[in-house]
Amino acid sequence: MRQIHLQILMLMVLTCTYTTWVYAATTGEQWVAPAQEKALRRAQAVVPMVKEVKQEGAIRRSQRLHALGVSVRDVKDSYFVLNSPFIKAVEDHYGAVRFNHGQHAAESGDCTICHHLRAKTATPAKNGDKPLETQRCSACHQQAFNPDYPERLGLKAAFHQRCIPCHEQRHKGPQTCRGCHLNNVPDHKKLVKLPDNADALQVTAECLRCHETAANDLQHSAHWLWRGPSTHTQDHENSVRHGKGTTALNNY
């Protein structure tokens, strides 16, 4: 009886998920967080390339910004999505990297670690009192191998060369490729083939058609094998070996 209850519950969950997914797929509506939307819009923007930079050493620059009163407190946007068309035009292997600008500023405490140089003529601020001392990475770093600026790194290399050594030295943040990059997920609208009124088992079978490795991995994970005391399960209050790995119903 209890197993049937569980099965019904599982069916309901799956049906709800599937219905939501079908709704999203058919109406094309997807809720996006406002910050995410703003970051995505910002990522698409292309600013004119900075041709000449003000040559100054790292320490001199850090001191000058300190004297000017420019600090991490001036950070306006705290969340970016690194999804520049400069990179996407050349390759499209990964999903966009989420970059927490505010957190990085707070952790490092020094703008000049990343904003290492600026344009020769500082951009006048729109409404503030200070001229802008920092610019976005893609203002200087755009396409790779630009013959006019051979020593200028492309945007992708500028990101990697700035991020990787710092994460390694500070032992903070992701230190593997997968820590920042997720694979591009292909559009499943074309991949999934299901009859109109598919039942839960059909949906599961359709997922398994491609994701067999993921299913096998799952069967060796705690999600599939968990067991333990179940003090809050009726009739199993004293059981110490209740769980998916033993008595409960297994399902995806």
């Binding site: 050349v90 790779a144 191998f145 051979p150 790194l153 290399a157 990697h160 060369q161």
Partner: peptide
Amino acid sequence: TICPTEAITFG
């Protein structure tokens, strides 16, 4: 093109 750190520069 693929090199993430521009260890290979082309020109």
